[in-house]
Design a protein around this nucleic acid. Sequence first.
DNA 1: CTTATTTTGTACTAAACAGTACAAAACAAA
DNA 2: TTTGTTTTGTACTGTTTAGTACAAAATAAG
Lengths: 194, 194
Amino acid sequence: MAGRPKIFDEKDAIRKATEIFWKKGYEASSTDELLAAMGIGKGSFYLHFKDGKKELYQRSLDLFSEDALKVFNRKLSEANDEIHFLKQYISSLADKTTEQKQKGCYLGNGIMEMSNIDVKTKEHAGKLMEKLEQIFEKIIKNAQEKKQIKTKKDAKLLAKYLINIRNGINITMRTETDKEELKNIINMSLEILK
Amino acid sequence: MAGRPKIFDEKDAIRKATEIFWKKGYEASSTDELLAAMGIGKGSFYLHFKDGKKELYQRSLDLFSEDALKVFNRKLSEANDEIHFLKQYISSLADKTTEQKQKGCYLGNGIMEMSNIDVKTKEHAGKLMEKLEQIFEKIIKNAQEKKQIKTKKDAKLLAKYLINIRNGINITMRTETDKEELKNIINMSLEILK
DNA sequence: CTTATTTTGTACTAAACAGTACAAAACAAA
DNA sequence: TTTGTTTTGTACTGTTTAGTACAAAATAAG
């Protein structure tokens, strides 16, 4: 194990890059800007990310999903009422700061921007989003079995429905400045989950 | 009224450019590509679009909205059951071709991409989307007065709810390849409108 | 036919872009 | 301390970008 030591942690660097990608999107983020945020030079970058910007973006989607799911699952396991937690999670999208609302959902943004630019990456982002959907499904199914909710609707379909609501909020939150109105939309959308 | 005659129609040219913007987004559409699609050279372009690409994009949003609303309003006036037409309109999003699904909603795409790139343009796209929302609201209000639907929920909120569903579909349709599943999500979302 | 006016096509510019080449630096092991 | 290995920083490359400059072309009016 010889060689000059690496001056940066890959995950940390990718997380820094994610901030840029999240705010500006893939196309509008220049490599120079990404490297500045990551705090490394081109030499290091192209050594560790052979496919450059595209590889960085793909890995940022993966790491984001990993991080986000970890947080979600931790909070879920801490909650004593899972279905209530799920509703609360969706509902709290309205409580995000204005800045957060302008950024939206990182995976959703990726699916949108990549859909006609890089199909493979779009599909990959879609698969990561599906992981969240599957967690939703499990929570709903459990709640149905425990009779916490009365609806007999298919849990998988309900999960897809919730993902769609969440996708909608990802766009709607960019222009709906009234937080209460946003909350009303979400609450109306959650009525089906009873 | 002298001078060399213009070889292109501005609206037609903008519509051609819209096809490119729609498919690839703002940032990924190069001026050269746009001009090629419009069938004009740089001389003509920068004479008629002083602010270049940005002006072209803004005018494409306006023209798109104008065209789309005209079509929507015409079909609406031809329908004998307005609320049924509205439901059908939302539901038929699932019937779009795969190619159309990858493109999504032009205004929604604009709101997303512009939200941290060009706030003014994002807000403008948002205002154009609001026009559709207001039409939705009127249809719903009329249906409530005519007792075609029983729900007493606020028409404006229901309209916002529908726009949010539509925004959600704009993202969900990119990765949900099963048309029937998409239809199920939409139908579930429309149950509230009874 | 001349003149004024507008549009067009093309050559050009300067900046930004992603990515490469490579020598120097910084280490572990021998 | 020498050797082999990996990482780093920087200078460089070729391409693409959006946009400009300007002469030539095409018209209407006088």
